[in-house]
Every structure is written in C-alpha cells, then in structure tokens.
Design a protein around this nucleic acid. Structure first.
Lengths: 212, 212, 212, 212
DNA sequence: AATGAATGAGTGTTCATTCAT
DNA sequence: AATGAATGAACACTCATTCAT
C-alpha cells in the first residue's frame, strides 16, 4: 500500500515521523498550558499538521496526553541507576556526577514539563501518578538507597538520621527545578554555584563541627 | 472537608460570610482541578450557594482566582520573619523551630494548594507569579539570609559554599511538600523522621568527617 | 432630565408618585436601549428605587413596557383634533399651527421615544402596534382629512391627487423626527427653516407654475 | 424568505456560500428582532447551519451585525446619483424616475431592514450611524441638491424656501417606508396612488393658486 | 411599602471531535 | 495519509425575577 500513492509532493515527510512530531508538540503545549488549557488546535499547528490529523494518531486529547506522559517518564532514572552500579570512584564523585546529570536534565526542560504536568494534573489522574511513582520515584528511591549504602560501606558516609531518608540527596535539586520553572523569569538561580552549595551542604552540613 | 452545606435557608445566612465561604470553596476547587479545570458550578455547590451568587461577590472566575491567590499568599512568611528577630536561642533551635512550623504549615494543606496553583498556572499568570515572588519568595529569602548571618556571627554556622545559598535551608521541605501533594496517596513520608533527617543533614551533612 | 433622585428618604416620598416615576424612568430606558436592551436594574436606579420595588408596581418587564407605551400614546392627537374643530382662521394658518405644535412635540422627545420603540419592537408586538394605530394613526388620519376637507370647502385647498393622501401634510415632519432621532448628533436640521420649507412646499410645491 | 433549509448535507455545500447565507439570515433576524433580540441560534437555523458554524465565519454577534449593516448600506444611493448626471429629460420626469426607484426599493424590504436597525440600534452604535450618514445620507443629500439646482437652472423649479431643504423631495417616501414597516399589516398604503400624490404635492403643492 | 440577597433559565461563545472527501 | 468544514456539548456569565424580612 506504500507504492500506490507515489504522487506525494516534493517534501517527502515520512509517515513514521508524524506521531513523534505530534508528541513533541503536545509535550510543549501541555507544559505551557496545562492539560485543560492545551488546545489540539495549537498542538496541530506546532506539529505542522491539520487538526484532524491528530485524531488519526491519537483517539482523543486524553489519549494524547497519556502518550506524552508515557514518553516523558523516560529512561533517565534507569540510566543513572545503571551507571551507579559500575561506578568505582568515591561517593562524593558519584553523587557529584549524579547531580550534574540531574541539573543538566532540569535545564533541558523536557522532564520539568512532566513534573509540572504531574503536579497540576495529578489530582485528576491518579493512574498517571501511580505509574510515574512506580516507574520513576520508586526506582529513583532504590538507586539513591544504593548510593547511600555503598557510601556507608566504603566508610564515606555517616550512618545517621540523614541517611535514612535518601531522597534528601536530590531534594535541593527539586527545589531548583520548581524555582526555575515558576520564578525563572524573575530571578535566575545560577546552576553552578547552586550545585556547589548543594554538594557542600550535603557532605559537610552548615554547622560548625567541633572535634577534639 | 468538601461537604456541601444546604440546610440553612439562604436568607438566614449572613452576607458577610458569603465571600469567605466562596473563597474557601474556590481554593479547594482550584487546588483540586487547576484554574481551567475549576468549574464555577462546583465552587458554588461547595460554598452552598447558586452559581449566580458567585458573580454577586466576584466579577468573574479570574477575579475569584485572584482573590483566592491573594488570600493564600498569607502572612506565614511575615510571621516567621518576625519571630526570628526576637529569638535568643541557638541557630539549631531557631532553624528547628522554623522548620517545625514550616512542615506544620505544609500539613495544613492551604498553602500547598497555593503552591500547586502557582506551578500549574504560573506560565499563564506572570503577574500572579510576580506578586508571589515579591510577597513570599523574596521575603523568605531575606529571612533565611538573616538566620544564616546570625548563625555565622554566633559561630554556630560555617561560612561556606552552602551558606551562600540560604534557600538550601528549606529546600528539603519543598520536596516534602511536592511529594505529599503528588504522591501522598501512594506513599506517605513520615513527617517527624523526615524533619529529623532534614535537620541532621542540614547541620551535619552526610559525610564522614575526618579530623586530626 | 435623567438625574437619579436620592436625597429624599423613602418613607417621606408619596406612594402615588412611585408608578409615575418608574414609568418616566422606564420610558427613558426603553428609548435609550430598546426593549431587550433595557435593564430593570437601570430603570430602578433612574427612578430612585430598588430593583424589587419595580415588581411591586408592575408584574414584569413586559407589563412595564406596555404601561409605558400606553402612557406615551398620549393625548396629543386628541388635543390637535379638538383644536381643529374650533379653528376659524385660514387653512394655511391652521396647518401652520398644527405643524408648529407637531415640531414642538418632536423636540420634546417623549413621543419620539415612543416612535423609536414602535419601530424597533413593532414586529414582536403586533398588539401594541394595533393599539397605537387605533389610538394615534387612525385618529390623526381623520383629523388631517378634516383639515383638508375644510380647506377645500373654503376654497383654499385644491382638490387633487395630493389631497387624497392627507398624511402628506405631516410626512415631512416624520422625516424630521427620524433624522433628529438617528442623526441628530451628527447634523442638526434647523427646525424653523425646515418648518418654513415644509409649509412652502406643502402649499406652493416646488414647481414653477405657468398660467396664461 | 425565512424557510429553513435542511436537506442538503453540510459537506456538499460550498464554503463560499456560507457567509452569504449567514448574512442573509442575520439580516432577517436583526430586522425581525433588533440586535439584542436576535439569537445566534435562530440565525444559524435560518441559514441552515449549526450555531457554532456562525463563529467559523464571524468572530461574534457584533461582527456579524456590522457585516450585515455594511452589506446593506448598499449601492442604491450611488446608483441614483449616477443616473441623475446623464439624465436629459425634465425635472419632473427625473424626480418621478427617482421616486419610482425609491418606492420600488422600499418594497424590496432589504433596505427598510437597515432603516429599522438604524433607528433601533442607533443610540448604542454611534459608529454605525456615522458610517451610514457618510455613505448614504450625505451622498443622498448632495444628489438631491443637484437635482434641485438643475431644475432651477432649467427654469422648472422655483427658487424658494422649499428648495433650500432638498430632503423634502424624498421625505414623504420615508413616511411611506416607516408606515409600511410598522403598520403594513394593518393598513396598506397603495404605492401607486401614494407616489402620484407625492409627486403632485411636490410640484404643485396643495394650495389653490390665484394668478392674474 | 420597600428591599438586600439570591437564583433558574437562558445567553453568546469555545472546544474537542467527526466526517466525507 | 491527510484535511477543510462542520458541529453538539459544555462553558463562563447575565438577566429578569422572587422571597423573607
């Protein structure tokens, strides 16, 4: 059935590209306007197709949204989880590497879009929240736990109240993400010094240590 | 608490109560559904009035939203800023007190509603973002800076990379807020141990200190 | 006079005045905005009473409108009809007098309000049109016919095609009325010279008469 | 023509027809109910489309109204203005021709619709009034002035009070228009005899001329 | 007699979606 | 595969009207 219609105009866009383009356009739209505020009209325009074409690939706005969410719940966590396993350096180096990638991801926006969507639409989409939790949060938690355990084993990390809540490792990064997302236009947090401060606090705390 | 009150006849209720009830109902609705998803219909029902009564007190959905936001941009920051001035104990005690109040506020939900609204509607409401930034973020930042400066002065806080970014003091609390807001139904973070861990990390860091 | 009266306390005002004031206010409102565009709210304000008071005197907007119309279908025609009977001067004097009063009435606006209402609302109010026709148009027609007949009898008016349509006597005045009503703000027709011209055309025509 | 067309499926009809059909339907609706009373619902039904299709072609009710008005402020005046220039007969013939066309136009209803709209909506649409005045009234005035001047030049028209107000030439026709519009259902003015009478009065007046 | 508070029915308009081509 | 044209259902909002006082 591919050969029958060979009278396609000069620009030959591949059929397979369409869904990808639409998903990308939709992610941007959902990020910018939230679910309810997102207009198929605009998604179509962004994707360079007609409004009706959207419905050729996705049953409806909701299905499109789910597809977008699915795609965005990406591979990030898996990647860092894997890279942790083979890491051979110190915990500080490991965490620094992890956080560098994390802040980098934040600045790449795509996943922050997902975060916004999740926060905004969560209450009306428990299933989406459940999936995200299973695919991202839980896995992330496990990965962080491993890092901490490894650190303790290696004598680089204190076994303490702080280390019972491994999320604290990345909590400041979420703050950074939210801040950038909401107040980014008004006041930019400089990522490098923020990261430095983050690591400093993480490893050394802010308190003055008095040791004999 | 979303119950629909109905039994007291309209004419017996006092006019002055109306805006308060409506604002409360609207806050809940905006929190639950975001701006676009919020239906005047439901707000009215929640407030125990008819749809048109809403418009007796607020010009339109937008005005209602602004009023809700205004009200929620509460006095919290001012209160803690003030209480810091007169504090006489150690920095650790001061920060503990601050965070206890902060986590308490989070669990009181109202302000987390505001946070969700801000994250979700921010892109389409720069003015709201600007006001929140001026009223809450900026003031909060100043208050945190003072705490850090006071700590350094008193020799309780290290002058370090970490202390150049005073937001780090409360960053983990925002993580807690977001987590509770989005994943609260799936996995509860126990506030007391989280707070303990937060403080531990904040003051001591997670790293093993080796001093001579 | 469209001022909103306010200073006299309600209890001092006489009950009997209320309907009159309301009708006056309603006439102005209907004149200014048409039936559909007229708002009970504004009528009440103009009349210096509360919205609900309107409904104390008139069942609903429609009834109020009918009452206004009724009142405006005034006595004007009857008056001029009567004054014609007793007139003893020439036809030209009679017609001049009639038209002077007619133009005067036009400039007093109240009846032009009625005309506007009739034109605008006529299609949806056949009954109103019927009543106006019976009370004003028909009577006016009869009065004009009498004037013409009297003129012919007295040898002051030609029996001609023109005199078979007695409405022609006042037709130019309606033009004046409409013009003032619609374009009055843009281009004022000076009433005195218009009246002079009207009478001149009426009695002499514009044509050059060539008689042997 | 108020019939609702239904049988031709929407997709078979041609896009170009839509605005024309809608405008026609809207003219009828505005004519029948005034601006405020006109319901998009009914316009759509009259035009044989769905309510939302209206908004595909016109931004809103107001824009639709303006388009209707624009279209109705037709070419009539220009046409008669032009035809006057080349006319070679007597003034009486010229005026008769003009009036015949004028009365014919009146009976064709479309422009009388415009007149009703103008009278009814004028107060709340000064801009519309201004445009109509510029496009129709002013031009008409100039055209009438030319006719009178030509008549005087040719010795067929008296230079007199009457001829200083050229609107008097068509004033009786406006009376006819209004009468037909408002009272047409109750009492028909027979156009031919009315026109004859109109011309008679115009040229000869109603007065008895006594010349030596 | 008069009104402040409230509302149900309806308004113009938008939106996600469909359908014949 | 892709679309221009069209629409039903829902939306935020207004309005004439009611009702207990």
């Amino acid at each position: 059935m591919t050969e029958t219609k060979e009278h396609i105009p000069a620009y030959q866009r591949r059929k397979a590209d369409r869904p990808v383009e639409i998903l990308q356009a939709a992610l941007e739209e959902f990020h910018a306007h939230g679910y309810a505020g997102a207009k198929p009209d605009r998604i179509a325009k962004r994707a360079g197709v007609s409004r009706s074409t959207l419905y050729l690939y996705f049953d409806n706005k909701d299905a499109l949204f789910e597809a977008v969410a699915e795609k965005a719940m990406g591979t990030f966590v898996d990647e860092i989880a894997e890279s942790t396993i083979s890491f051979t350096g110190t915990t500080e180096e490991l965490v620094r590497q992890l956080l560098e990638r994390f802040y980098d991801m934040i600045l790449t926006t795509k996943n922050s879009a997902m975060m916004r969507i999740l926060i905004a639409e969560g209450p009306s989409r428990p299933e989406l929240v459940r999936r995200y939790h299973a695919l991202v949060i839980r896995k992330g938690h496990v990965a962080l736990e491993k890092i901490v355990a490894r650190g303790i084993e290696r004598g680089e990390v204190r076994k303490s109240a702080a280390t019972t809540v491994p999320q604290l490792l990345i909590a400041p990064a979420l703050f950074f993400l939210i801040h950038k997302m909401v107040f980014g236009d008004l006041e930019e947090l400089e990522v490098e010094s923020y990261l430095t401060a983050h690591l400093d606090m993480l490893f050394n705390g802010i308190g003055v240590k008095m040791r004999a």
